[in-house]
């Protein structure tokens, strides 16, 4: 049997080839510079890539402050979501992934405000503290990190270096938390584009970040199928009712520890406030069906990606977390609902 480490290390080293084009309205010279080809670690964040690309692009930028952001097919990409997760949501198999990079005119109405690399780092460690609370009931393992350890953990992501990451004195493992059951931290993105293509991350994806119990009521390890059977109906309550109508999705991505820009649904969606996440029990039991090796949600086949790879529905969720969690200790999963 393949060892867990033989899965863990490639997860750290996995890269996405990017083709970066500088946004033409950022350019002060007549000729737009050639695109830049660059490999980016799946576990990393886009602003780090923008910083590297700046070495090539900075000569043609107008004077002023850099506020990096990316778009793919005109969709602005949230900076706080790991690169591999964005790729799995939006691009899946495009090689190289063709992105446009901007250094001006940050779209504050769509994305969380950009406060520089320190803000990104703070967001990452906030996320790690949330994961520690879910696993161990308290954020202490992260709060106790020295700034040197924090820097080393942060640098390890930039270098795709699992060894360096694990050499920092940080262990976070799911365990019992008083009367609460043992859980793993999961971030789940469900992609359900109306017409087979994605027009907006906010409209066409649902998102949740939450603890997920690792054992069922009989004490047996919960599989991925079991977890999705519970989560999909709660997360996508309107999926079955109106066929192909677009979902009032939630925005992609967690938020950093400031709130002066609350995330509103964009203007195409109307109000998304009224949809309660619960649906009736009867409705739930029919919504998800297991058919041999497939999972169907309202008749549409569910494809679950972790680390860019379709994973078995029978995989125990605790094992998926242990081997494939991100450097913030969250397990990130992207679910695509196949077009009916």
């Amino acid at each position: 049997m393949i060892s867990d480490r033989a899965i863990r290390d490639p997860n750290w080293q996995a890269q996405v080839p990017l083709r970066l084009t500088l946004a033409s309205n950022d350019v002060t010279v007549h000729r737009v510079p050639d695109p830049l080809y660059i490999l980016a670690f799946r576990l990393g964040y886009l602003p780090t890539v923008a910083e590297k690309a700046l070495e090539v692009f900075q000569d043609v930028l107008p004077p002023g402050e850099h506020t990096p952001w990316f778009e793919y097919k005109r969709i602005p990409l949230p900076w706080q979501v790991p690169i591999g997760v964005l790729y799995d949501i939006l691009a899946k198999e495009e090689m190289p992934w063709r992105l446009t990079v901007h250094y001006r005119s940050f779209p504050e109405d769509i994305l969380l405000r950009w406060d520089g690399m320190e803000g990104l780092k703070a967001h990452h460690f906030s996320s790690m503290k949330e994961a520690a609370c879910i696993c161990e009931g308290r954020a202490k393992p992260v709060m106790d990190l020295s700034s040197r350890d924090k820097d080393s953990l942060w640098e390890a992501i930039d270098k795709g270096d699992a060894e360096q990451f694990w050499s920092a004195n940080l262990r976070i493992r799911p365990g019992p938390r008083g009367e609460r059951p043992t859980c793993i931290p999961l971030r789940l993105y469900v992609v359900h584009p109306a017409e087979g293509f994605i027009a907006s991350l906010r409209n066409d994806t649902s998102f949740t970040s939450r603890p997920v119990e690792i054992a069922d009521s009989r004490g047996e390890a919960r599989t991925l199928a079991g977890v999705l059977e519970d989560l999909l109906p709660a997360l996508c309550p309107n999926q079955g009712s109106t066929g192909s109508s677009p979902q009032r999705g939630r925005s992609v991505g967690p938020s950093r520890p400031t709130a002066d820009h609350s995330e509103q649904p964009d203007e195409h969606t109307g109000s998304g406030e009224a949809d309660a996440p619960e649906v009736g029990e009867d409705h739930q039991s029919k919504a998800v069906e297991r058919s041999q090796s497939k999972l169907l949600f309202h008749g549409r086949q569910v494809e679950a990606l972790v680390a860019g790879v379709p994973v078995s529905l029978d995989a125990p969720i605790v094992w998926l977390h242990a081997t494939l969690h991100h450097p913030d200790f969250f397990l990130y999963m992207v679910v695509h609902l196949q077009h009916a």
Binding site: S126, S127, K129, E130, A132, C133, I134, R138, A139, V142, M143, F207, T208, S209, R210, P211, R250, S251, G253, P254, S255, R256, P257, T258, A259, D260, S262, E263, P277
Partner: peptide, 26 residues
């Protein structure tokens, strides 16, 4: 104008998460 919010005296959750989910967890 600007406020920093925390659960469990440590982290800021996603602003888009449902209160029921956060209550259940924290």
């Amino acid at each position: 104008d600007q406020v920093f919010v925390y659960l469990k005296e440590s982290f800021c959750p996603s602003l888009d998460e449902r209160v029921a989910v956060l209550y259940e967890a924290y």
